[in-house]
Amino acid sequence: MEFFERHKSIVIFISLTLFCIISLSVHGSRITLTTEGMMSAVISPFQKLYDYVFGGAKIWVGSSEYDRVKNELVLTRAKLQTFESTYEEISEIKKENDRLKSLLGMKELLKYDSIVADVISKDPDNWYRTLMVNRGKDDGIMVNMPVVAYQSSINDNTKTLIKGVVGKVVEVRGSISRIQPLIAPEIKIGVKIGENKFPGLLSGYSHNSNLCVVNYITRAAPVKFDDIVTTSGQAGVFPPDLIIGKVIKSEVLESSPYQRAIVKPFMDYNLIDEVFIIKKAPNKDLFELFGEIQ
């Protein structure tokens, strides 16, 4: 007893270290996840409150900004009306397109419902690049659901709204979910590059950059600057042909039978504060197949 009293600091250190190591060893077990959920439950109300207060403060401080946004909203509504007027025209084109597709024997692309979610926090650590949103199991969100967002882009003095992939849901709790973005090095997404749709595997470039890298592209593929990268839809998570980003550089490595491409995602991770979660359940058959392979 005297030994413990004399070396109290070291005893506490060893005990706490053992706790961490055991916890890491049993990572993924039910107990760990439950405890983690409890700790998160303590933090998330504060995060939501801070987000709410911060959002309120921004509106209060930047009333001029608010006016600008309001004007933009009026303009956007006007634009929307214009777009609605062209709806008939588009639907005609769509019908014709569908007919041509069916003639070509192409599979009809599935349409999914989506739910809007606000980003309430981002990962506080530099090792991970995840986003926390205010939608969870209660809203019907499931793990591996794809996430997209809209972001405005100015090209030749014209403002356009781009829909691009943000990432996928990796964790779901009652009223919150965690999203793994495209720029996370841990993510793996099957993609197609350029007009010829060469396949590749996309992941985040590094922990501190907002770029992605596409690996395993055949050397024969003519990958060039500004080529569009889209989802392949083959892994059962993302629907096909969702826009991811543009190629900014391609690299052919001497030691590798493949080439790789550095991709700049359309969605700027730093500017994302509202996302749409596509309510598309992952393809169970494919997941079971992957599970068997692993």
Binding site: C20, I22, L24, E36, D125, Y128, E171
Partner: peptide, 25 residues
Amino acid sequence: GQVTGFVSGLFHDAVSNSPYGFLAL
């Protein structure tokens, strides 16, 4: 120091995408 590090690390793990103990240790 170590108690603060341990407790804050656990909270950090809870809000981060890391396994429990990864940022605490």
